[in-house]
Structure formats: structure tokens, C-alpha cells
């Protein structure tokens, strides 16, 4: 049972952060289907920092540098979306899909090259080990082993809620996703706000990526990407109605289903049912499909999302 809680917390942390990222992007008017790819880039950068840091680096150094690397990599990769979709008015679905493919391929190539170089040509794998880095993030409270990542997610969630509802910046960002012409007519730079939205999604997506690969694992194969976590986060975002506090709740719900697949054997009554583990893997996706079917009719996506803004066309 404790294991279930641990996994739930980790997956919830990932889903909350990535879904918040998607929320900021969509609220500014850009559909970000490339969250999956952003997570891969963030995770890779964070993992490489953990591998590269000298073995005597302090815990705090590891934590801080890893997080900076992951978020920075996420933001840089999100620029692929911003440039194409905001400046060049490209198809947002196509670009998001392309970024996902790009991320997996690039991560594989980079990590393999990285390993090859470090091992003098003996290790060609796309795998990174970061046991020490993984341990640096662990924190024991009584019997429960939690991770600094979870604390980080909670802190960022609170920040995001305050930011979303209380600041001038977020008010303007939200206006751009709903009615960019109105925002423009009161002197708001729609392009700049959309860049901000996409970069925020890069920041959150990158952090989500490193948590996904490092919170419960000490090694990761980068040719696998992040197994649809980014897309689950999109479903969480839709179910959360593009609002941070509701996103947090739905993330926890999804996380429970997701973690069942990892720990179903450890829970007595579930183990007795003899359901193969992979069936639990399907759960979150089936649940989200049903949930989307129930909510999509009334769901209020930001009105102007997916529509390139053209200042000339009035």
C-alpha cells in the first residue's frame, strides 16, 4: 500500500507539472502536442547532468543543477514549437508530432554518442545510469520514502495557482488564448504572450520529464521516450478544464490508475484477481478516453487555441 502511495505521488507530480505546462501553452492559444518530446529533452538534460557531476558533489548541488538543466532543456526545445507555430503559422498538430519524434531520435543519438565517447567506444547503448543522482533526491519521512521532486511539484503547483489567478501577466496570457483581437486592441503583444505560454510549457514539461525518469528509477533507456506520459498529461489538462487546481485533482486520480500497473502485484486483493499487469497499463488511457467523452461536450477549451494569430487580418 505504501508503494502504491509512493508511485501515485510520483506520477501525480509528473502529470501535474506537465499538464500545467500544457495549460499555460493552450491558455495563450497554442496547442502543445509536443509535451512528450519536451519531457524527453528535459529528462535527458537532467540525467546527463547527474551522470556528469563529480562523485563528491553535494546533494544540493546535484538537485539544483539537475533541475536547472531539465527546465532549460525543456524551454529550448519548446522554441521549436514557438517559432514554427507563432512566427510561421505552421500546423500545430504536425509540429507537435514532429517534435515528439525529433526528441526520441535526438535523445537516442545524443545519449549513444555520449556513452560512446565516455566509454572509449565500448558502450553503444542509449541508457544512462544515475544511481547517485537518483538517491540525492530521496527524502525519508518515517516509513514513507518521498522525493524532493514531489516537494518541488507541490511548491510549483502553489506558485502556478497564485500566478494564474493573481498576476497581471497571467491575465494577459489568458486573454490571448480567448480573444487575441481584444488583447491586441488594448495594447497587449499577442505574439510575445504566446511565446511566454509556450516557454512556460517547456519549463514545466522539462521538469516533468526529469521527474518521470529519475524519481522512481536510477536508469533510463532513451530510445523508449516517455511512454505517452505527455499525452496523458494532455488528458489530465482537459479533464482539469485548463484550471490549475482542478488539474492537480485530476492528476492525482490519473496517477492512481497509472501506478496500479506498477504495483498491482503488491496489493493483496488485486493480486488475487490474477489480471495480467499489462491490463493495468491500459487503464489510464481507457479512463481518460471515457472521461473525455463525458466532459468534451461541455468542456471550454480556450476559444482561440490552435488558430494562428495574424495581426494583419482583421
Amino acid at each position: 500500500m505504501i508503494l502504491l502511495i509512493q508511485y501515485t505521488l510520483i506520477f501525480a507530480a509528473v502529470l501535474i507539472l506537465v499538464a500545467l505546462g500544457g495549460m499555460f501553452s493552450e491558455r495563450s492559444g497554442i496547442i502543445n502536442l509536443g509535451l512528450e518530446g519536451i519531457m524527453v529533452f528535459g529528462g535527458m538534460a537532467g540525467a546527463m547532468v547527474m551522470v556528469l557531476l563529480p562523485s563528491d558533489a553535494s546533494k544540493a548541488t546535484i538537485i539544483i543543477l539537475t533541475l536547472i538543466a531539465a527546465s532549460a532543456a525543456g524551454m529550448i526545445s519548446s522554441l521549436f514549437i514557438a517559432v514554427a507555430c507563432i512566427n510561421f503559422k505552421a500546423d500545430q498538430t504536425l509540429i507537435g508530432t514532429a517534435l515528439n519524434m525529433l526528441a526520441t531520435a535526438a535523445a537516442t543519438v545524443i545519449v549513444k554518442a555520449f556513452n560512446t565517447a565516455r566509454s572509449d567506444g565500448t558502450d553503444f547503448s542509449a541508457k544512462l545510469d544515475y544511481v547517485k543522482g537518483h538517491k540525492a533526491f530521496l527524502l525519508h519521512i518515517g516509513e514513507l520514502e518521498i522525493s524532493w521532486f514531489i516537494i518541488l511539484a507541490v511548491v510549483l503547483l502553489v506558485c502556478a495557482i497564485v500566478f494564474f489567478y493573481k498576476t497581471k501577466f497571467a491575465l494577459r496570457l489568458r486573454a490571448c488564448g480567448e480573444h487575441p483581437q481584444a488583447a491586441d486592441s488594448v495594447g497587449i503583444n499577442v505574439y510575445a504572450m504566446r511565446y511566454a505560454g509556450v516557454l512556460l510549457s517547456g519549463f514545466f514539461g522539462g521538469l516533468g520529464g526529469i521527474i518521470y525518469i529519475a524519481a522512481a528509477n536510477s536508469t533510463w533507456h532513451f530510445d523508449y521516450g516517455v511512454a505517452g506520459a505527455g499525452f496523458l498529461a494532455l488528458a489530465v489538462m482537459i479533464f482539469g478544464q485548463w484550471k490549475p487546481e482542478r488539474i492537480a485533482l485530476s492528476a492525482v486520480l490519473f496517477a492512481v490508475f497509472r501506478s496500479l500497473s506498477n504495483v498491482n502485484g503488491g496489493i493483496d486483493f488485486l493480486a488475487k484477481l490474477h489480471i495480467p499487469g499489462t491490463i493495468y497499463n491500459m487503464f489510464p488511457y481507457i479512463v481518460s478516453l471515457i472521461v473525455l467523452a463525458l466532459t468534451s461536450k461541455n468542456s471550454r477549451a480556450p476559444k482561440a487555441e490552435g488558430i494562428p494569430y495574424d495581426k494583419g487580418a482583421r
Partner: peptide, 16 residues
């Protein structure tokens, strides 16, 4: 996988 990467870049460019 460099070849896969090239393919992914080509898709991205298709957006343009």
C-alpha cells in the same frame, strides 16, 4: 538513429 533524426527533422520542416 542519426537517420531517424534526419527523418524527424524533415517532418518538422514539412510544417514550413
Amino acid at each position: 538513429q542519426v537517420a531517424d533524426l534526419m527523418v524527424a527533422i524533415i517532418i518538422y520542416l514539412c510544417g514550413f
